[in-house]
Amino acid sequence: MAGAGDGGAGAGGQPLPFKEALFCFFVSIATILGTGILALPVKLYECGFGPFVVTFLFALLAQTGVVWLMVEILQRAEHRMAHSASGPQASPSLHSLAAMYLARPIRFVFNLSAMVHFVSLLIGYVLAWSKAFCQLAGCEDRVVITPFVIVFTAAIVIFNKQLQPLVTTLTFIKCVMLIVMVGVVGYIGSKADIDPSTSWPAMGSPFLIGTIALGGVVNVMPVLYERIPKSSTAIRQFRSSVTAGVAVCWALNILW
């Protein structure tokens, strides 16, 4: 895995700063944890806990493989960009990766798919936040959606770097709140008079939603990769930080 990438990385063993490693770890968690985890119990009900753990373990192995493969691709792409032209080169992005490795028709489909994916994802978060806020505040969501989009989009565009430590802190709070909710739900479930059932033939039922609940981190890895020192040590630590984020999300989903 480290062959071509480490050759393209800077010489030496400059480590990844702890602050950056923590940032990559929590951003990975924030990217993965979303609506998928909330939908898992609906599908889990059809097969039971045991079959779900088996299918979800395959999802963990697949996502770990995707993370390691993406790190390798980013290193190869950076090495190729550095030797293709003179002058400073930008870090690899999803668009540049498509331009380097895909034929023109497939490249167009990939870029279009990426745009649709990110736009639909952002729309989902906007609607979810607006609905949740309006239910707590007792107001119409149509009044909240537009100001929410304008204010927070402007804040992210203008104060991107200043907000990054806040995103890390809020992600940590989000994980703590999720763990608390897992405990509360577990306590309530222990008081409910329901006999759990297991159906191995239905073990494929939660597979799709499981991949959604554990996927998505590869979309932000090019952005995170841009922040790290290009040494073999830092790249290994970056890969470990993202992989650890995937593993923590897997454990949180299992507990949930």
Rank of each mutant, 00 (worst) to 15 (best):
F118A: 08
A132N: 06
P105Q: 05
Y225T: 03
L97R: 08
V149C: 11
G5Q: 01
C175D: 04
Q164V: 14
Y101F: 14
V180I: 10
V167K: 10
F18W: 12
A155H: 00
I209K: 06
V167F: 15
P165A: 03
L255R: 01
F56G: 11
C249I: 01
P206C: 14
L74V: 06
A202C: 01
A62V: 09
W200E: 09
F58L: 15
T243R: 02
G87L: 03
I145Q: 07
I37C: 04
F207I: 12
G8C: 12
H79V: 09
F152H: 10
W129K: 02
V217C: 15
I209Y: 04
V246L: 06
R236F: 05
S199K: 11
V184G: 12
P206K: 13
L102D: 07
C139N: 02
P17T: 02
V182H: 02
M203R: 10
P88T: 02
L163H: 11
A132R: 10
L38Q: 08
G3E: 13
M100L: 15
I254F: 09
F110S: 09
I150H: 04
P41H: 07
G186V: 03
H95T: 00
V71D: 01
G3A: 15
A98F: 11
W200N: 12
A4R: 15
G7V: 08
I235Y: 08
V149Y: 01
I194Q: 06
V53Q: 05
A213F: 06
G65A: 09
L122D: 12
H95F: 10
N111E: 04
S130K: 04
K174W: 02
N160Y: 11
F25T: 04
V223M: 10
S96V: 00
F118S: 02
D6F: 12
A59E: 01
V184D: 03
G5S: 07
L112Q: 03
N219M: 10
G138I: 08
P92C: 11
V246D: 05
A244M: 14
R107V: 09
H117F: 09
R142G: 15
V176G: 05
G13P: 04
L97H: 10
K19H: 03
I123K: 02
